[in-house]
């Protein structure tokens, strides 16, 4: 099931990624992100979510990875041979897994570096206000070294920094990693608001499937470098296999109780 839009914002078609010329990590991944949509990319550790995002943003090549087959198109233009700086200028920014703030720069300086690809001082100031509007907590922290603020605040800095580049598409890699559940909820709410109010499309790679499927409209499930399932977010969260393996629910829809642990595992109904 692909989106109904005539031409998607981003379309990844059948890409293969090889690291170090030998290690095949993505084996024919295809996905699309519609204009202004939120798409979730689910999967366990090592399924290839981050690699997919890095293939799109161009960060792959600094890790000696390469897109060897297939194509990545952004608004109909091929971007898989571009370097990261050009991709950002096209309007795609990745927020990397593990936050990666500039620790020795202040929160505000971190945000300002996000505007590097743009040269207009006046609108930078305005964008800064927009970021502070979405992340009011950062206002109090603006003069602090980013290395010293809390994990949740660092994640906000990372997202805010990406926003400063005025992206049309944001690639969010595990924003929930290492954060308290309350903060995760807060950050996901902000992402959803950003999407609604600013029209930023989001491709969200997450292990936390429950949270991701709540904000996303469409979802893909990855395993071993392949997309094994895709569909409407609601349809995915109702899929028996997803409930079993990703959402931790049994068939009846209740949280699994460890008092009656099953002696068998449900078999996945897809090929991987």
């Amino acid at each position: 099931m692909v989106s109904d839009a005539p031409r998607p914002l981003l379309s990844v078609s059948n890409i293969e990624v090889i690291y170090d010329h030998v290690i095949l990590v993505l084996k024919g991944v295809s996905l699309t992100v519609p204009e202004g949509g939120i798409v979730a990319l689910l999967g366990a550790n090592g399924a290839g979510k981050s690699t997919t995002l890095k293939a799109i943003s161009g960060l792959l090549r600094t890790e000696r990875g390469e897109v060897t087959k297939g194509a990545i198109e952004f608004r109909g233009r091929a971007i898989h041979r571009r370097n990261p700086s050009e991709v950002v200028k096209h309007g795609i920014v990745q927020v990397m897994e593990g936050r990666h703030v500039f620790e020795h720069l202040t929160v505000e300086e971190n945000l300002l570096t996000g505007a590097y690809t743009r040269h207009n001082g006046q609108s930078t100031k305005k964008d800064l206000d927009v970021v502070y509007h979405y992340f009011p907590r950062l206002t109090e922290r603006r003069g602090f070294k980013a290395g010293y603020v809390s994990g949740g605040e660092q994640q906000m800095v990372a997202i805010g920094r990406a926003l400063m580049a005025r992206p049309t598409l944001m690639l969010l890699d595990e924003p929930s990693m290492g954060l308290a559940p309350m903060l995760v909820t807060e950050i996901f709410e902000i992402v959803a608001r950003l999407n609604r109010a600013e029209g930023v499309a989001v491709l969200l790679a997450e292990q936390n499937a429950t949270m991701a499927l709540q904000v996303a409209r469409h979802g893909y499930v990855m395993e071993n470098g392949r997309i094994v399932l895709d569909g409407d977010a609601k349809a995915i969260s109702e899929n028996e296999d997803i409930k079993e393996f990703y959402l931790g629910l049994t068939g009846v829809g209740q949280r699994k109780s460890y008092r009656d642990v099953k002696h068998y595992r449900r078999r996945k109904r897809w090929l991987s």
């Binding site: 960060l59 990261p84 950002v88 927020v95 990666h100 500039f102 300086e109 990372a158 990406a162």
Partner: peptide
């Protein structure tokens, strides 16, 4: 100058926000 300090802190993150 700010970009230089950013690169010093974290190459990859600097790349990810478009600093060449």
């Amino acid at each position: 100058g700010r970009a230089l300090r950013a690169v010093a802190d974290d190459h990859e993150a600097a790349l990810s926000i478009g600093i060449p």
